[in-house]
Design a protein around this nucleic acid. Structure first.
Lengths: 214, 214
DNA sequence: AGACTCGGGTTACCGCTAGTAACATCGCAT
DNA sequence: ATGCGATGTTACTAGCGGTAACCCGAGTCT
């Protein structure tokens, strides 16, 4: 029958695809985003053209790889964000989830944030995917949705929620990136500091000297 | 005499260097960060090895190029940040300065945010955290310094200021990047929304439905 | 049986890149 | 004139992403 045959083939293809993705994962984890198609193929025990048959081009492979990790991370973030707790607690928990993830697997994190720009080689012509990390965009959009659903922002709430979504995600990301490099404090302290920022402590603080402020 | 000779040579070398940088600038502005050394050399009317004599490698050239723009942008940001006005006004003005800059020359902005990733072959030694866009780091550090100088944050202020510096810069960056791509609102609205976020409107807003929060 | 397509696989190649070694050339101080 | 150092070029290496061409074993049709 056509269908069974087709499903068989598709199954086998999917299995191969998963195997290749796992091999690619290993190599990217080891070599960073500079991992070459040759190296990935070698790790998978096959040769380049097969990779290209499965993923089209390097961008395709990287996109597939990124989607896996992105989906996984977004799942845990959603869980933290949707927990039955008050807002501050949810915010802190979400921040901590994100930071714990990038702390646990910095290589993955680095790969997700700078996937394109594949160094040298013939990637001239068209940039696959956007230049910016899709993970940030997706997190921003999801957070925007949650904010709009759960926080009462008055008129213009939708637009405001989107700005805030992307802004808060960017804050988390930049602070996390810096923290991961310098480790100037514990994760819990970082989470608290960021939540304090979001909770308006900047606006509430007084000026230091009798400067130009009021 | 040694000194005069040296200064003469150095002057000429500096002039060349500046010419090369301007040529590189033109190419990068036209071709994006994918600009090749060959193309840059051609634009400057010379050949590759000269570029390498002046800048070491591609990373060196890009770093020099980035430093110029980064310095220029930081100067205008500092001006906005140090203006004699109250805090909210300064914050809005700084946000607006940044957003106006990336709006006016998006190519430069894209280049500054994704400069590195070069280096084919040999070097596989890279530390997580160091490779991120230096512009963000510098902005974060500068902002941290200003915050610590001018805002009274009580004990632990230095560390808190640094977290906030990087966090706020990241917020600005991510929101700006998203805004630049989608243009969902005017620049002024974006500035206002972000300032509102920093001013604690998130904490002040009520829950939408009778959800788990109180 | 025998020809025939077809999916998975490999070799060998293209055009491009970053980076370098070796050679040529000009200006200049002794 | 002669050596020297900076400036410049040609010609090359090594490696990349990506592709064309071939190859082979398994199932199918006649």
């Amino acid at each position: 029958m056509d269908t069974t045959q087709r499903t068989d083939q598709q199954r086998s293809a999917d299995r191969r695809r998963r195997e290749l993705l796992e091999a690619a994962d290993r190599v990217v984890l080891r070599d960073g985003p500079q991992a070459s198609m040759n190296a990935i193929a070698a790790e998978a025990g096959i040769t380049k053209p097969i990779l290209y048959r499965h993923f089209g081009d390097k961008g395709g492979l990287y996109a597939a790889l990124a989607k896996r990790h992105t989906d996984a991370l977004l799942d845990s973030l959603r869980a933290a964000l949707d927990a039955p707790a008050d807002r501050r607690e949810r915010v802190e928990s979400t921040l901590d989830t994100y930071l714990a993830a990038i702390e646990a697997r910095p290589q993955v994190y680095r790969f997700l944030m700078h996937p394109a720009e594949g160094s040298a080689g013939g990637d001239q012509g068209f940039d696959v995917g956007k230049h910016s990390a899709p993970l940030l965009r997706r997190m921003g959009e999801e957070l925007a949705q949650v904010i709009e659903e759960r926080v009462d922002l008055g008129p213009g709430s939708q637009q405001l929620a989107r700005v805030w979504g992307h802004g808060i995600v960017g804050m988390m990301h930049a602070a996390g990136d810096w923290w991961l490099g310098e480790r100037p404090c514990s994760r819990a302290e970082l989470v608290r500091s960021l939540a304090d920022l979001l909770w308006g402590r900047l606006a509430a603080a007084g000026d230091r000297m009798g400067g130009p402020g009021f």
